[in-house]
Design a protein around this nucleic acid. Structure first.
Length: 425
RNA sequence: GCCCCGAUAGUGUAGCGGCCUAUCAUCCGAGUCUGUCGAGCUCGGGACACGGGUUCAAAUCCCGUUCGGGGCGCCA
């Protein structure tokens, strides 16, 4: 029965069977070592030539990254990790071709381009695996938290009709005899669920944006963690968001000690209150730093870098100008809205808001934004027959992973990134 | 979409008019070495993105194409 490599140390002085990839084979005249790797770690197998001549010679020409299974005695030894497996039986399950398009254990770092082209090899490296183990923890801890808080997990359609929010470019798809689009966000649907009386919902699903951006923080398909709650305001859902981030940080600290060590990242320490800085205060902060910025202007990347870059923690930017936020964001007063962003330093992690719940205000907002309320009837109608006040937000899973692991390119936290020029693998 | 920068063995690089039948490392192959762990040592293998131009001479300079990187814009 095959065991995981990290379990070998619990079976010293007994027979074990392990399977994995031969990441390095060191051959001496009378003894050879095979470093075997599986999802849990690595261990070396040893084979003395004496008494095993045939097997010994056949292993001399085995390429790196060949998949094999070995049986033998697990023993304490002078190996660096303190133990090894004395090979008795070895079965080649699948030979690797050579040379490798990308060395898994080479000392040379490859370009991200080469790594993405050969992602299956790149992901064999423990650091890359670790990123996605952590991402799994993040997603699951958030999901658990929501379920615990009485949220209902929903799955909204990803193929949508022409009319959406405006603004973002959409990917067109052929829908039989009609044109449709890939969904940019579950926004309208999760709001409709409030009208449906589900009270609190969440969804973890892909979102598609056909923007031709080319930055280390944008991709065209990402995983959006969305939530929406009824009978709450913007401050309430900011509280929930702060908890969610802290829960995720806590779960990583508890479950991914080894991965953090491999990545050389310290445990997230989030035991501080997330600051809530109003948009207008943020503008003042920029002005104090010599940046010419008027109240009402959008916060550009350089502004966020200068001001946000100084704040090396999570913080909210609240009360954005209505002008800068979408039609479904609830006004705070004539000028400002109940929309907010969660930032980490310069990076936007989340966008959220208390939403408009009055159909009249909604229709008015649509018109003001130059959109035709008629095209949104499927959505607006849900407001006509009893829509509760509600609020919600959406986090980019990949961006959250970047922040918690201090990774600077979103492609690193995406298994198979879709960017301006990449659709494969 | 705009502005910079880049493309040399499987991988990562040096070279930036003649010294280049192109450097180094890794890798691959052959051999050697009684326990290595970035194994060591010896020998061998493998590359100038594509198209055009300038020049006696181009990896090197110029133009175009393709692809990539960075910055910005766009971006619920």
């Amino acid at each position: 029965m095959r065991i995981l490599i990290r379990e070998v140390k619990n079976h010293l002085d007994s027979e074990v069977e392990i399977s994995g990839w031969a990441q390095n084979i060191r051959i001496m005249s009378s003894v050879l070592f095979i470093e075997l790797r599986d999802v849990s770690g690595t261990v070396q197998g040893v084979l003395l030539k004496k008494g095993n001549e045939e097997l010994f010679d056949s292993l001399k020409t085995i390429p790196r990254e060949t998949v094999m299974s070995m049986e033998g005695q697990a023993v304490k030894s002078q190996a660096k990790i303190g133990y090894e497996v004395q090979i008795k039986n070895l079965e080649i399950l699948n030979k690797s071709e050579t040379p490798l398009p990308l060395g898994v254990v080479d000392k040379i770092d490859s370009d991200i381009e080469t790594r993405l082209e050969n992602r299956y090899l790149d992901l064999r490296r423990p650091e890359k695996l670790s990123i996605f183990k952590v991402q799994s923890t993040i997603a699951n801890s958030i999901r658990d938290y929501f379920v615990q808080q009485g949220f209902i997990e929903i799955h909204s359609p990803k193929i949508v009709a022409a009319a959406t929010e405006g603004g973002t470019e959409l990917f067109p798809v052929k829908y039989f005899e009609r044109n449709a689009y890939l969904s940019q966000s579950p926004q309208l649907y999760k709001e409709i669920m409030m009208s449906a009386g589900f009270d609190r919902v969440f969804e973890v699903a892909p979102a598609f944006r056909a923007e031709e951006h080319n930055t280390p923080r944008h991709i065209n398909e990402f995983t959006s963690i969305d939530m929406e709650m009824s009978f709450v305001n913007d401050d309430d859902v900011m509280d929930v968001l702060e908890n969610v981030i802290k829960v995720a940080g806590q779960s990583i600290a508890e479950s991914n000690e080894r991965e953090l060590e491999i990545l050389g990242v310290s445990k997230p320490s989030l035991d501080y209150k997330f600051k809530r800085i109003s948009y207008s205060e943020f503008v003042k902060m920029a002005n104090q730093r010599g940046i010419k910025l008027k109240d009402g202007e959008d916060l550009s990347t350089p502004v966020l870098k200068t001001v946000g870059g100084e704040i090396n923690e999570f913080y909210f930017i609240t009360r954005w100008p209505r002008e800068l936020k979408p039609f479904y964001v609830q006004p705070f007063d004539e000028e400002y809205s109940r929309g907010f962003d969660l930032q980490f330093g310069e990076l936007e992690i989340t966008s959220g808001a208390q939403r408009v719940h009055s159909p009249e205000v909604l229709v008015n907002n649509l018109k003001n934004k130059g959109l035709n309320p008629e095209s949104f009837s499927f959505y607006v109608n849900a407001f006509r027959y009893g829509m509760p006040p509600h609020a919600g937000w959406a986090i980019g899973l990949e961006r959250l992973t970047m922040v918690l692991l201090n990774i600077s390119n979103i492609r690193e936290t995406t298994l198979f990134p879709r960017d301006r020029t990449r659709v494969t693998p």
